[in-house]
């Protein structure tokens, strides 16, 4: 019952990095965390408090030292890696702080690229879906522009479209507006929140922006949920 209502459930999650000489730095220690389906959660915390690591673990692109993560009832680290990759492509949209758009591809191709890894729709529909998403984000005139030809705000909107391309139920956004000016950041965040709310997607967003904090259903401070914050290497 618990897992049916939760988009993400963490239990006993730990992540530590070896420092050499037998010493280990614990980055994350979260006994339990549940993100309800359709919620918009903002994650705040100091630099180095493990926000990005937490997102990477939920996305399945980093492996926890201990604990379990369920995303929409799937124990993602119980899945073999190829299946976990497929699961990520279909169920999780990831928005990076540094955009990470692929330079040789146009905005449209960048969005379509993520559909290549999750064949959830027919090839003929992919282009239409990508065009639709980019238009929704105000980029209909930039479909065939490559990343260097786009402004930072436009690049981040392409990243959002790419994350939403496979219509994932969970969206992870790692400080999506950190590299944007205040006005552009507002536009981008508004667009992201609107799309996620309309489509009843679960959003976990790392941000320090006060306007975002106000718009979220829930704000989580890493200092409160992560027991490893401030811990010295052991």
């Amino acid at each position: 019952m618990r897992q049916a209502q939760a988009a993400v459930t963490l239990r006993g999650l730990q992540k530590s990095f070896p420092l050499g000489n037998g010493r280990v730095l614990e980055i994350l220690n979260i006994p339990q965390l549940v993100l309800p389906v359709g919620s918009a959660t903002v994650l705040t915390g100091l630099s180095g408090s493990g926000k990005t690591t937490l997102l990477n673990l939920i996305a399945g692109i980093a492996v926890p030292s201990a604990g379990k993560i369920w995303v929409h009832n799937a124990d993602i680290f119980a899945l073999p890696e190829p299946q976990r990759d497929r699961f990520r492509a279909q169920h999780i949209g990831y928005i990076f702080q540094t955009f990470n758009l692929l330079a040789p591809f146009t905005a449209l191709e960048n969005v379509m690229l993520s559909m290549l890894f999750a064949p959830v729709m027919a090839r003929s529909e992919q282009r239409q879906r990508a065009q639709c998403l980019l238009s929704q984000l105000g980029l209909s005139a930039r479909l065939h522009h490559k990343p260097p030809q786009l402004s930072r705000g436009e690049q981040q909107r392409v990243t959002i479209a790419r994350a939403l391309a496979n219509n994932p139920p969970l969206v992870l956004a790692d400080e999506p507006c950190a590299n944007l000016d205040a006005r552009t950041a507002q536009v981008v965040l508004a667009a992201l929140l609107t799309i996620c709310r309309q489509a009843h997607k679960t959003l976990l967003l790392v941000s320090h922006d006060v306007t975002v904090l106000g718009a979220a259903d829930r704000v989580l401070d890493m200092a409160e949920i992560n027991r490893a914050v401030g811990m010295e290497p052991v």
């Binding site: 990759d85 497929r86 492509a89 990076f96 990470n100 690229l113 890894f117």
Partner: peptide, 12 residues
């Protein structure tokens, strides 16, 4: 870029 593709769900 390869890491980005992997993060988007590309298999090894």
């Amino acid at each position: 870029e390869i890491a980005t593709m992997r993060a988007l769900g590309a298999r090894r």
